[in-house]
Design a binder for these strands. Structure first.
Lengths: 155, 155
DNA sequence: GAATCACTACTCGGATAGGGTGTGTCCGAGTATACATGG
DNA sequence: CCATGTATACTCGGACACACCCTATCCGAGTAGTGATTC
């Protein structure tokens, strides 16, 4: 899995703590973690395409959260960065070669694909079941000073 | 995820249906699905290193299951092919840059890492909860002719 | 006839190239601000 | 003093290289079987 997911999650939390009334440019977000600015910008573009953040150009421009943390799940961010395709993609080798099964013969998919799909569904369900708001609450509980320090640093 | 996982799962089932008294060379297994023989051999080597199959060289050599299907889970095969590293690897960017948290300050890991780890644990748990024996039983129930046909083709 | 030995064919195993996706960088389009200018 | 036009600086957005891992291939090490040779 690409590391852009980790960057995107941290940035979403930071944007929330900074407040949605201010737009933060990618360069500043990158500076906080010493990440490649242009590449982080690319990841944030993906978040913008997914409707998670909104972007504005020009001076005083940048990124801000498009909706509250309560309506952003881990799944949303992962899907925005990694794409919607499943990790395990069945190439249907069962329909090739001498022992080929007729593709349309059984309406159900390849059983291996179904089994792997069940596991991936459990993964997605877990990701979709946790919002960034819960994550933010956990951080504020275990490290109360962090959000304030971040808001101050970006000020 | 690499497609070698799909190949390995099909091959394990085929080896089980053929019977463990016979060793099947990689070339023959590849021929059944028209896969690149040498590359499939590489995947089977990974299964051998993981102790899922045993390999014997020379004439009448090949691969055979090292233990019954009841003791092989989807997780075993995935770990053998893909490696033991988790898909999401936290790069600890939280410990870098101006807002660096001291690494040893909190004994618990980065909360984002923990959240992603929970999801991945659900995935692994689902994979580890299903054995190839159950998968084989499903196939024999929905497509009763397949195992016999495979055993016949490899004969 | 039986045992031994060399030879052959076959298989795995690791070392070696090629391609595709993720990683990283650069420059142009667009915009809001600030300033100068004129009424 | 206020409105307007212009220049400017700043930001995103997409187009352009680089690198690493997955994919694919090839050849050597080792082994079991086979046949010839010898006692």
């Amino acid at each position: 899995m690409g590391e852009g997911v980790e960057w995107a999650l941290h940035c979403c939390l930071n944007l929330a703590w900074i407040g949605e009334e201010r737009a933060v440019p990618a360069v500043k977000l990158a500076g906080y973690y010493e990440l490649p600015p242009a590449y982080l910008n690319k990841q944030l573009q993906a978040l913008a395409r997914a409707g998670i953040v909104s972007s504005t150009s020009g001076p005083k421009g940048g990124f801000r959260l498009a909706r509250p943390l309560e309506r952003i799940t881990l799944m949303d961010v992962v899907a925005a960065i990694e794409g919607p395709e499943p990790a395990f993609r069945c190439t249907e080798i069962i329909t090739q070669g001498p022992g080929a099964q007729a593709p349309g013969r059984d309406p159900e998919r390849c059983l291996i694909d179904r089994a792997m799909g069940r596991a991936e569904l459990a993964w997605r369900r877990e990701l979709a079941g946790q919002t960034l708001a819960e994550l933010s609450a956990d951080v504020e509980r275990t490290m109360p000073g962090v959000p304030g320090r971040i808001r101050r640093w970006f000020g």
